[in-house]
Every structure is written in C-alpha cells, then in structure tokens.
Amino acid sequence: MIYGEHIQCDFPDGEGHHLRALAISALTVPDHGCCAVIGPSGSGKSTLFRCLSGLLRPTAGRILIDGTDITALGSGELAKWRAGRVGFIFQQALLLPYLTVMENILLAADIAGLDRSQKRREAEAWLARLGMEGFGRRMPGRLSGGEKQRAGFIRAILTAPQLLLADEPTASLDGDNSRLLMGCLLDYQRESGCTLLCATHDPAVQALFPAQIRLMKGALAS
C-alpha cells in the first residue's frame, strides 16, 4: 500500500527561483496495484518515481509505503530500506559496460546482499524464459536494445521487490520488443503480486493497465 499526502518537490531553476516539479495532495496505490502513470514529458513522472523509491527526498509532504514513512528515514536507513524492496527499470537498460550480462543482472541482488548462487540460477532461468539462454557471459555491448532491456528487467525483479517502478521501459523499443517486455512485466506482477507502476507515453501500453495515474505539471489530473 502506497500512501502519499501533500507531496511537493521543488528544484532550483538556476535563476534563484524554484521549479515545482511535483505537487500531489493525496495519492493512494493499493497493494498488488498495477498502474500506468501517464502524462506529457516534464509532467513529473520520473520525479514521482524517485520520490516513491526514496532516491529523492520530497521538499514537503509524507510518503508511507507499507506503513513506513520513508520521508522520515535517514539516508542510511533509506538505502537499507530501498535495497531489495524497490525494483527499477529505466528507459535505457543502463547496463555497466565493464560487467558481463550476468554480473549486471546480479548487481542489484549483490547490493541487497542476497544469496548469489541461488540468484544466479534464477537469473539463468529468466534468461532462458526470455529467449536469451547463455547470454550471461556476453558483454552488454554485444546485445540488441530489446535484449538489454530484458536484462535490465531481470536485474530489477531478481531481488523480488515489493514495488516495481518502470520509467518508460518501452520508449526506446520497437513494437515487438515492447510487447514482449510488457508481457513479462505484467506476467511477473501477476505471479509475484508486487505493486507495479509504469510510466509511459504509449497508448498501446497504457491500454494494458487496469488503472491509471494521470500527471499534469506535477499534479494529479482526474
């Protein structure tokens, strides 16, 4: 259960003024929720995700996730809370170029301090399931865009997060790859029961979600 109230997020605009990126009076996402977050570019989708994951502390307001007020946690506690609880999928896969695909996939699990050999087996199974059997030993540079994004997806879910945040995951993919990835995401959400928020521009992707959060200039629009 995600509950937020009076969330404000200001950024300095470089001219001594503040730019209000986020101004949400009340936000509720139920457990096992599956929501598309939609809105034009610059409407605050990424900022909302960063606030919900604890990466960014809002200027004002409270965010409670499963009863924990993450806006009241210190940065050390926040990092501990975040590790293994939140999964992130980005527009670009953002795989580290000096690690193999498998090492990249295990990165979040490593950071969370999870059992490496067990996670490796799970990762192998996911790679096989996504048509990337044996890709673990490759370097990311030799993967296609869709393959990279799928590797990024496995990296995000390997820690079994309760909250999965996908920030325009299909924006740089073609139709087939986009459908493949979204199928994985939604399947995983159904299997695991995690809360999935997916920011997107794509009407085809929006249509896959039963619920929608619509943002407009940082505020919720009805």
Partner: peptide, 15 residues
C-alpha cells in the same frame, strides 16, 4: 551517472 544507477539499484551513498 554510473553512481546514480548504483544508487537506483539499492546502493547507499556510503557504498
């Protein structure tokens, strides 16, 4: 940017 990614993947500032 690499460090930002690591943070997003769960690493703390100290790590």
């Amino acid at each position: 940017s690499e460090f930002a990614l690591l943070r997003a993947l769960g690493a703390g500032d100290s790590a």
